[in-house]
Amino acid sequence: MAVGNALRYAGVPDVRITVLIPAHNEEAGIGAALAALSRQTRRPDSVIVIADNCTDDTAKVAAAWRAEVAVTEGNTDKKAGALNQILADILPRLRDQDLVLVQDADSQLGEHFIEAALEYMDARPKLGAVGGVFQGEPGAGLVGYLQRNEYARYARDVRRLGGKCLVVTGTAAMMRAGTLKHLSRARLDRTVPAGDGRGGIYDTTVLTEDNELTFALLHLGYEVLSPKECTLVTEVMPTWRDLWKQRLRWKRGAVENCFQYGVTPVTWRYWGRQLLTMAGVAVTFIYLTSIAVAIAVDGGVSLQPVWMAVTGVFILERVVTVSDRGWRHMVAAATMFELVYDIFLQLVHAKAYADVILNRERKW
């Protein structure tokens, strides 16, 4: 990738930006990710594709785009382990003010992402990470459509909060090299959980390394932000089965991260969200049970004012919160598909809570 233009950042000229893209068998999508980087209004100075246990042509495609290719050695810790290997190599050579952008191989950054992230970093010295606001890629039929609606609602919430976010997602995150070095030292002295025990930036023992990384940064006194200008497109799960597996990992990982850190001035709001989610699961269970009982006892479903009101409020919320996608999507959001999708997610949450409580084996 070509060297980016010089930029004065935090009083230091020519800050360098290194992009890391962990990739496991991403031959089909890595080209699009690299093409998006080539269109950045502030192009990165180096791009490293981390070929992790690949059995396809990921490395070949990346090299064709003139990206540097780093091949992991003996990594058994998936994305977190791959990133730790490369960061251990490059961090000592980076100045504290230099920047590292970690992005998924199945994501494409909006053309102003890096430029906007730089401006926020320059203006706010306590920013530990700048993440992205993502939308779903086209395709995958109904399940893809419902995920795109979900992502649009998330983007709306983050925008309304001025970029404040609970998690800097793994789709894309920019961090200072000095922040990462600080985090590595904190892992070693156990100011935050030790992770791999060797000062690795990412915790290889958890299911959701991006959520845990956010917790670690917040506990070290940093802020995190997902500005509306930092947009990107990311993959959607192509099937209900794939979506179930993804969301189960996300939810269980988030719950386990809460237990990992305990109740602190940082995590109390995350615990609060878990309690709200559990309440939502309970309401969904009562809702479905009432329908099942009505069918079994009365042979049909009678219109109960309470549940009609609950359903009406739900549909209204679904319609309003997808307004950014236009009126056609607002009309479609009024269908029962959104209710089915919400019940699906509530079932995922219930399964995640049960797995944590019963300490079932984790699979990813």
Score class of each variant (00 low, 15 high):
65 W>A: 11
86 I>K: 05
268 W>I: 07
67 A>Q: 07
192 V>C: 01
96 D>I: 00
353 Y>H: 12
6 A>Q: 14
319 V>P: 06
195 G>K: 04
211 N>T: 09
89 D>G: 11
246 Q>G: 02
204 T>W: 08
103 Q>T: 13
265 P>R: 00
255 V>K: 02
291 I>L: 05
320 V>G: 11
329 H>E: 04
308 M>L: 05
192 V>A: 02
261 Y>N: 04
268 W>C: 04
133 V>W: 02
54 C>W: 10
203 D>H: 14
10 A>W: 05
235 E>T: 13
236 V>W: 13
31 G>F: 01
339 L>F: 04
351 K>V: 13
127 L>Y: 03
21 I>N: 04
44 P>L: 14
81 G>M: 10
345 L>H: 03
300 G>T: 13
37 L>I: 05
173 A>L: 05
277 T>D: 15
245 K>G: 10
157 D>I: 06
158 V>M: 04
181 K>F: 03
352 A>C: 08
336 M>Y: 07
274 Q>V: 12
326 G>M: 02
239 T>R: 04
263 V>S: 01
300 G>C: 12
170 G>C: 11
298 D>I: 14
202 Y>F: 15
60 K>D: 08
55 T>E: 07
11 G>E: 11
171 T>M: 09
152 A>P: 02
322 V>H: 03
40 Q>F: 05
69 V>N: 08
348 V>E: 05
44 P>C: 14
24 H>Q: 13
13 P>F: 06
47 V>Y: 09
159 R>P: 01
357 I>N: 07
196 D>M: 04
256 E>W: 11
153 R>E: 04
363 K>A: 11
24 H>F: 11
258 C>Q: 09
172 A>Y: 08
357 I>Y: 12
134 F>V: 04
243 L>T: 03
18 T>M: 07
140 A>I: 12
87 L>I: 14
271 W>Y: 14
99 L>F: 02
8 R>Y: 10
292 A>G: 01
289 T>C: 10
327 W>R: 06
250 W>C: 15
88 A>N: 15
133 V>H: 02
38 S>V: 09
284 T>I: 00
334 A>N: 05
83 L>C: 14
108 Q>D: 02
109 L>Q: 05
94 L>N: 06
11 G>Q: 12
29 G>N: 12
265 P>Y: 00
